[in-house]
């Protein structure tokens, strides 16, 4: 599915300094019953965000009007658990274009890259700095520069570089997905299939 191109994102950020945030928190299984990709943002962090009677939980960060922005900053091992792409859809649909963490679970990272959410892995030290800066001033801005592969705390100018494969980077810069590529090499795939052992 096509998504918006990603180039340079300058935004305030929402802090969630909890480790091992799993995909059942990002989107509980009971909200996976859609047959179309619509409305998942409403249920992002559903059970942390809402009481059983659907009133907002005031102490959860997404319900705190002080924090907003297109960047979500999470704790270590973000996105562990299920392969549900719905978790990444919920993040995107809510309005985040970038998730920052000192460590990502593998499938979640991959799903993000496939749908246009940029996972930015930073050092544990820089992650601490980002959290501290946001808690000190919720209006503090981060700049995520995909062409340069840098993330910068604009208030102080402190920055770090992050990793992304050249292939995935090119996809995100242009809004391409893997299916476009795979379709283009279909004859090669069909020939390959003829010599497989099984």
């Amino acid at each position: 599915m096509a998504y918006d191109k990603f180039n340079i994102l300058k935004s305030t950020a929402v802090p969630l300094p909890i480790e091992n945030v799993d995909t059942d928190q990002l989107i509980p299984a009971r909200f996976l019953k859609a047959t179309e990709r619509v409305g998942f943002g409403d249920n992002l962090f559903r059970d942390w965000r809402y009481n059983p009677d659907n009133t907002p939980k005031k102490d959860f960060v997404l319900n705190n009007p002080v924090y907003s922005g297109k960047i979500l900053v999470g704790g270590k091992n973000f996105g562990s658990g299920s392969s549900r792409e719905h978790a990444a859809w919920a993040v995107y649909d809510y309005g985040f274009r970038c998730v920052v963490s000192s460590f990502f679970a593998d499938i979640f990272r991959n799903n993000c890259l496939n749908i246009g959410v940029l996972p930015v892995q930073v050092s544990p030290e820089f992650s601490e700095k980002i959290f501290a800066a946001i808690f000190a001033d919720p209006n503090t801005e981060l700049e995520v520069n995909l062409p340069e592969q840098t993330i910068t705390l604009l208030a102080t100018g402190e920055k770090e570089t992050f990793e992304i494969s050249p292939y995935k980077k090119d996809n995100m810069l242009n809004g391409f997905d893997d299916i476009d590529y795979l379709q283009s090499i279909k004859p090669e795939i069909e020939e390959f299939a003829l010599q497989l052992p099984l």
Partner: peptide, 11 residues
């Protein structure tokens, strides 16, 4: 993920 399910179905 679901994007990859689509890849496998198609290619």
């Amino acid at each position: 993920g679901t994007s990859e399910v689509e890849m496998v179905l198609s290619t």
